[in-house]
């Protein structure tokens, strides 16, 4: 089983500002030249938007002006937690999950990002009906147990 990717940083501002910047102002800081579908094609995305509500979309306007959905907001709790179903460059059915928490610290805000749900590849309705899902999780747990240790 692949462990989640967990990242922690501290930023020198209160959680309210950190959360608002992360969500409403994502376009001002997101590395559109590196982390975008446009970047995968050697270009720079024009814009990145996060609709600030549960059920909202995360949208890249790519270098040709086309809107591409990266995922959706599954929890929008100002100014403490954000959860996303994440499927950049993939179909929504192949989403993995991202959680970002914002906690006050002595020097500002601790931001923790967790990206998990690799077993979701097997979490498909059709497979679950024939009892196959557990087997796919088993592939990760047994065959790839050492891949990232």
């Amino acid at each position: 089983m692949l462990p989640p990717v967990i990242k922690t940083i501290t930023v020198p501002c209160p959680p309210q500002h950190a959360f608002d910047t992360f969500t409403n102002d994502i376009d001002t800081w997101w590395p559109k030249d590196k982390n975008s579908v446009s970047a995968m094609n050697g270009a720079v995305a024009q814009r990145v938007v996060m609709e600030p509500k549960t059920g909202g979309a995360i949208i890249e306007t790519d270098h040709t002006g086309t809107d591409l959905i990266w995922g959706s907001v599954t929890e929008f709790s100002p100014h403490s937690k954000l959860a996303l179903a994440w499927h950049i460059n993939l179909e929504p059915k192949d989403a993995t999950f991202v959680e970002v928490t914002f906690e006050p610290s002595s020097t500002g805000t601790t931001v923790t990002l967790k990206h998990y749900g690799w077993e979701a590849f097997g979490d498909k309705a059709q497979d679950m009906h024939d009892g196959y899902n557990a087997g796919w999780v088993g592939v990760f747990e047994t065959a790839f147990a050492n891949a990232c240790s």
Partner: peptide
């Protein structure tokens, strides 16, 4: 991917 994104976020706030 997340290293790049979070570093950019942190730099922006700083």
């Amino acid at each position: 991917f997340w290293d790049d994104a979070l570093t950019a976020f942190q730099d922006h706030i700083i």
